[in-house]
């Protein structure tokens, strides 16, 4: 399996993603934002960072990079695309995922490990039972997910809510468990088909024990590998 990891000016997690994928025994290559060929990759990842300095809005400029029209085509043809943190913001700006990511409610940049709960979803990237609690690091200033009520209803009805922030035991507090104020505690969503997945936490940092303990990040990268192998086999 070969992952293509897109590098925008200001991306800073691309090496972590490539490393995580290689640790899991797969191939990963960097894709420069000016490139337009994605045909060689089985899956594409938009990594975290501060593409184009987060100017205008996070992801607003990256969305118009030459590679992005290819990413849109790739995603629309049903092939797997993962957006992590800034990558998630870029996917919403590119309208591959609904909603937007606002400044954290407490105005603080948050960098810590949180617990998230896997929901019953159509996501092709996450291969764990609904209700499974994962420990993943977050590292962002704009992770406060928002969308209009009709969109939220659609996300829930279609099984597009993939991950919700939760307490360590998997429960959610009535006042919300999202450290950033995200609507309905949403940490990650997918498109209707389930091939495009965006999340604020950084799974790539908890794959190799050298960079983060627990190893829960592997469920995302191995999830898509299993899905694709299922398709091929």
């Amino acid at each position: 399996m070969r992952f293509g990891v897109v590098v925008f000016p200001g991306s800073n997690c691309e090496q972590d993603v490539v490393h995580a994928v290689r640790v899991l025994g797969h191939d990963a290559c960097y894709v420069w934002h000016g490139d337009t060929g994605l045909a060689d990759y089985d899956a594409v990842v938009l990594p975290g960072g501060f593409s184009y300095g987060d100017y205008i809005r996070c992801g607003a400029v990256a969305r118009f990079s030459p590679v992005m029209s290819e990413v849109v085509r790739y995603a629309r043809s049903g092939r797997p695309v993962l957006g992590i943190c800034n990558g998630f913001q870029i996917l919403t700006e590119a309208h591959l995922l609904p909603g937007a990511l606002l400044r954290n409610r407490g105005l603080k940049f948050i960098c810590k490990t949180v617990t998230v709960r896997a929901e019953e979803s159509a996501c092709q990237w996450l291969d764990v039972a609904a209700g499974t609690v994962l420990r993943l690091p977050i590292n962002h200033n704009e992770g406060n997910f928002i969308c209009d009520p009709a969109t939220l209803e659609r996300l829930i009805d279609n099984g597009q809510v993939v991950l919700r922030y939760c307490e360590p035991d998997g429960s959610r507090r009535p006042q919300g468990s999202a450290p950033n104020g995200a609507l309905d505690d949403i940490a990650g969503i997918c498109n209707e088909r389930g091939n495009v997945f965006g999340l604020m936490p950084h799974p790539e940092r908890v794959v190799d024990p050298v960079t983060g303990d627990g190893g829960d990040g592997r469920y995302i990268f191995e999830g898509i590998v299993r899905t694709l192998e299922g398709v091929v086999g």
Partner: peptide, 8 residues
């Protein structure tokens, strides 16, 4: 297209 995000 760019300067504002009509979603928010």
């Amino acid at each position: 297209k760019l300067l504002a995000n009509p979603v928010i």
